[in-house]
Design a protein around this nucleic acid. Sequence first.
DNA 1: TTGAATAGTGTTATCGATAACAAAATGCAG
DNA 2: CTGCATTTTGTTATCGATAACACTATTCAA
Lengths: 348, 348
Amino acid sequence: MSEKKPVKRRTRRSQGSGTLSEVAQAAQVSEMTVSRVLRRKDKVADKTRDHVLKVIQDLGYVPNRLAGALASSSSNQLAVIIPSLRNIVFPEVLSGITDRLDEAGYQAVIGISDYNQEREASLIEAMMSWRPAGIIVTNTRHSEQATKVLRVTKSPVVEMMDLTGSPIDMCVGLDHHKAGREMARHLVAKGYRNIGYLGCDLIKDAAAGKRYAGFCDALRDAGLCIATSLTVDEPSGVGLGRHHMSALLAKVPQGQKLDAVYFSNDAVAVGAQMYCMAEDIRTPEDLALAGFSGLEIGQAMPIPLTTIRSKRYHVGWLSADYVVRRLRGEDPPRVTDAGFELIEGATA
Amino acid sequence: MSEKKPVKRRTRRSQGSGTLSEVAQAAQVSEMTVSRVLRRKDKVADKTRDHVLKVIQDLGYVPNRLAGALASSSSNQLAVIIPSLRNIVFPEVLSGITDRLDEAGYQAVIGISDYNQEREASLIEAMMSWRPAGIIVTNTRHSEQATKVLRVTKSPVVEMMDLTGSPIDMCVGLDHHKAGREMARHLVAKGYRNIGYLGCDLIKDAAAGKRYAGFCDALRDAGLCIATSLTVDEPSGVGLGRHHMSALLAKVPQGQKLDAVYFSNDAVAVGAQMYCMAEDIRTPEDLALAGFSGLEIGQAMPIPLTTIRSKRYHVGWLSADYVVRRLRGEDPPRVTDAGFELIEGATA
DNA sequence: TTGAATAGTGTTATCGATAACAAAATGCAG
DNA sequence: CTGCATTTTGTTATCGATAACACTATTCAA
């Protein structure tokens, strides 16, 4: 048997935060014991634990989770993908998510898809390579590639905000089509007949598209249809409503007059309301306005906005909750309708 | 030499996504070659690379970055800590950060401190255990423990939004004290003398505290002082201004009358403006209003808000940029004043 | 033709933890 | 005091990649 002398090599430089084995040496115990102390798993004698903890403290040791996660093939990171941060709705959802994850000791890793399916797909792949404990994505429409990756993974997957009968795994949201219908019926019941629409790109924002479809369907059932509509391919926000409301009104055919406008969401509606206030268009006498979301700003307006409250924080919280529960071996519902709620307001 | 027969053990279950070595086997090359193909580092013959890529494709292999980061002791994750997501300012900063990080191939891991130093400290520790490539924190005030951890790490650290002469590492922000002074001078120049203040908790929100201090200092220089002030310990937002404006006005001593109010930020100011509109208090004739941030909503109001624009997106972008540049071996400035800009508006 | 430089690929040790099993220490009934 | 159950602690292999170096095949100037 030939004896191989191990080649002497320059050791790779260490990270500086110390390692388990350094702690173990300093504490005169095995690495496993230190590991057990840190994870509060298995039994460790009180005396030993106290001693090890003290050494850890003294050394200022910070465990390396990369190594931990690799060895145990389990991470406390959870991937979350949302379309944007500029629409206040998503930070609110995110708040619900992080609140729930915090409680359970998980950490959100956030990706912004910019309403772009390809970006979403590449984000999902990049995030999966960190082997997260679970993943939460927005809406139920994804590229083929993304769907495949999400189906294959064994980690819990939640599609949130929107609903579908056939989720990849789990799904928490609300029925946007129904929300659109409900608002249409409300406006019709209030006597409005010439209704316009102003909103963002309906393809990009699938949920807004569903609301619009539902709205039109309900109008049709009432023998009506959208009088004038304008969609703009720019980020949804107050500015959109403020700057494009005049264009919508200008688009109304000669001799007709709108008596109400439905918006893709509250931000746009609030912008439009600002426009009306600035132009002395009285609400709702001259023109009724209706939004969607139930944003704080809409309700803080001098004339509170007629809208539909989506339970965003709750949806986020529940989504995270389902992932956490699944990881604990429980079996949360596959499809959850978080519902919504019409806010009468005073703009319609 | 005693021969040890390796004990047969149940192998740990694999993750299912395949491994480098499986790919290597399937492609009939060494693991290193596959690794090189994936990282586009070192040379690989075109023929070999194409072949390996095909195998990777066929197997649907997703590399395990936990292992990669551990072995190379380098990650593409960047820790970002912000106080809150509910204040739209932070999502905007975050947008700047993620935009810049995206370009450079990094990923933000976000933690929410809730304006709480202890939470911040424990978040920092938890995040450091993932050995992020860098870390961005908000403001310049941190618990002792957190400061220590940040000082010790070799990764780039950016403190953003606020300024300090002695940053832990780097610092990008604006001078809030100066911003407060500037607004005070502006109001005084406009002839206002009885100025009130309404805002959120000044201890929690250190930057708002500095603005207030600067505001008061400049008033003092003009021989004035804050006539009436009210701070409320609840999340800053439109609701705060909308609901507490009446309390501020009620607090004004008999016989006096406020002619202007300074707010901790635009959200609060907008809320107050809503209150005024609802109560038929004319702006600025009866009461002038001034905020801070330069939010879109403030400028969309029928009477645009007098305020100071902070370059939030830019601050976020720059912060991320500095980290990226440092990681590339460059040497970005240690302290960067991103400045601000007074927006005249029409509420003062 | 030759030898040095370069290109391409492979081998071995290692990153820093945890899983699974093994062994030692301890407690306690009889 | 003995022997078995229970606690507590240790040993070894492994997680899935990359670093550092070693080696082989080409290329090309002299």
